[in-house]
Simulated scan of single mutants.
Amino acid sequence: MITTHAPATYRCPICLGVQGIVSPDTLIRPTDVVYQDELVTAFINSFFVGVNSGHVIVVPNEHYESIHTLPSAYGHRVFDVAQKIALAMKDAYQCDGITTRQNNEPAGDQHPFHYHFHIFPRYNDDGFNAVQLSEKRLAGAEERAEWAERLRGELGDN
């Protein structure tokens, strides 16, 4: 059985960010966006993990809580854009590898309750798996904008 985990009064921070709404209910700013089309948006995550700064989240523009309810057309587009971002990330960040992650439901460490697909830049011996929770920090909008600009420059008109 598929259930929603968002409270009845939930105001989705990702929906607000996709719409370009700056509000206390979202940390996403328009300067975080590195890609947007009719189905998906990709943006620099508000939280940086260890030395793996500038990771990207790809989301459907419509609200779907998890992989359980995400229509396949959106899933396909999320993957296509994630691949494009990963390739751009390799050049823009000079990273040695990429890690992707997608969490569902509270037991799967999902928060917020809007489907989102993470793309992390990885570096040799970066300790990512050991620090991903203990060294997570909120990055400022200006810092995120710098990382977003690097990726947008690499993505060009793709």
Rank of each mutant, 00 (worst) to 15 (best):
M1F: 09
I2C: 03
T3N: 03
T4M: 10
R11F: 07
C12M: 12
C15K: 02
C15A: 07
L16R: 15
Q19H: 09
G20S: 08
T26Y: 06
L27F: 07
I28M: 02
R29H: 15
D32R: 05
V34E: 02
V34Q: 02
V34R: 01
Y35N: 00
L39H: 12
V40R: 09
A42T: 12
F43N: 04
F47P: 00
F48C: 00
F48A: 00
F48R: 03
G50T: 10
N52I: 11
N52D: 11
S53V: 10
V56E: 13
V58K: 11
V58M: 14
V59F: 10
V59T: 12
P60S: 02
H63Y: 14
E65H: 05
E65F: 10
I67K: 06
I67P: 02
H68G: 01
T69E: 15
S72P: 01
S72A: 09
S72K: 12
H76T: 09
V78C: 08
Q83N: 09
K84D: 09
K84E: 10
I85Y: 07
I85D: 06
L87C: 08
A92M: 12
Y93F: 14
Y93T: 07
Y93H: 10
Q94H: 12
C95E: 04
C95Q: 09
D96Q: 05
G97W: 14
T99W: 13
T99R: 08
R101V: 00
Q102H: 11
Q102L: 02
N103G: 01
N104T: 08
A107Y: 13
Q110H: 08
P112T: 02
P112H: 03
I119R: 07
P121T: 04
P121V: 01
Y123H: 09
D126E: 10
F128A: 02
N129W: 15
N129K: 08
Q132R: 06
E135K: 05
R137H: 05
L138M: 14
G140L: 10
G140P: 03
E142A: 06
R144H: 03
A145L: 10
A148P: 04
E149M: 03
E149V: 01
R150V: 00
R150L: 04
L151A: 03
R152E: 00
G153S: 05
G153T: 04
E154A: 02
L155E: 14
G156D: 13
